[in-house]
Design a protein around this nucleic acid. Sequence first.
DNA 1: ATTGAATGAATGATTATTCATTCAACAGTT
DNA 2: AACTGTTGAATGAATAATCATTCATTCAAT
Lengths: 205, 205
Amino acid sequence: MKEVNKHQKIIKAAVKVFAEKGFYNARVSEIAKEANVADGTIYLYFKNKDDILISLFEEEFGKLVENMRKEINKEKDALQKIKRFAVSHLSFVAKQQQLAEVFGVEVRQSSKFMKEYVNKPFIEYLNLIRSVVIEGQEAGLIRKDLTPGIMKRAVFGALDEMSRYWVLSSKKKHSVDEAALQISDVFIWGMMSEEARKNYPWSNG
Amino acid sequence: MKEVNKHQKIIKAAVKVFAEKGFYNARVSEIAKEANVADGTIYLYFKNKDDILISLFEEEFGKLVENMRKEINKEKDALQKIKRFAVSHLSFVAKQQQLAEVFGVEVRQSSKFMKEYVNKPFIEYLNLIRSVVIEGQEAGLIRKDLTPGIMKRAVFGALDEMSRYWVLSSKKKHSVDEAALQISDVFIWGMMSEEARKNYPWSNG
DNA sequence: ATTGAATGAATGATTATTCATTCAACAGTT
DNA sequence: AACTGTTGAATGAATAATCATTCATTCAAT
């Protein structure tokens, strides 16, 4: 049976099962069932259960990083890039809930125990923010007393916690769009240099 | 042998083992060994392995919430409370690394526990921030267009991501104190109302 | 006839949990 | 103070269940 890409089919099934059950409570047999392949077939495409998670992360998160890089480059000033980052991040979460759940809830936790595996795509993602902060400081838009390495974690953390709420809660009281705007707005005003606050052409809304 | 509180001894051992290995890779027998009790003794004090994690969370996080409530009440204006929250949160992380690791990495990120176990103490902790935001809005210090339910997640998320970096990284490039100050400063400036920005007696440093 | 992708039942390891047994502490009795 | 019975906390070897992984076999395609 020359079929569609099994690797991809298994990854897709794994996203679903990992999101529903969590990595440790996910059964390889259930992923196989979801992907419509035999249990053993998984092992023709992946070394083991860990490898499914790692591959899925490398591949899918890799795409996300590339996509985000393009998104923020649509803006030319650093403060607008922050806003674009927030909106894109949360829009991805809303569109790809299961994947977001695996990224946010499972991977960073699990990666701790996969000693060898340094989470390259994740670090890259964080460093997109860091670059924007540095760029903003060089342009005089962002306060120079702020450490880019701290700010990248603050911005990402704020968005990530919001994502977790969005993905895990069933109620979804706040809209993700509204959250993205409010969070980026607070960071923009909070990080903006004194000078920029006077001159920057800002129509807050 | 009438001994010291075994319940407490087991919890303490569990914190250490969970922090080192993660919940799913932690062995009950290892917790027993660490606590100097027999494997079976654990089951005289806890229903099962899950129950160890849940109890530890309820008890230890409960203390943290109470402590934080006292801390922020040392300040009387909302913006200073935000700062105090940030400093206390990260100072706790630095002082109780293993416990912080279990709180941050194991409990909150484990979708199994987030989904099946409604995390009362955690919600209470978040709502401390929410109350402060509301208080600040009522006093005219904080912009009224910001949703307290979004802000509580943004502030907590920023601090939490910083904590995760701090506990998991071995390098510890940034000091936690510095991080707390920068993060709270950005939030304070970002959330402050136009009016407060003019009148508030602020010595930024 | 040959190949090798795919299968899924069987295997082997791992571990949470149980429970028959031990033993220290104390109370009552002589 | 010595002996005996009772209690229940503590033990840890044995159990039972769960799953990741394997591999002998099948079978579709060429």
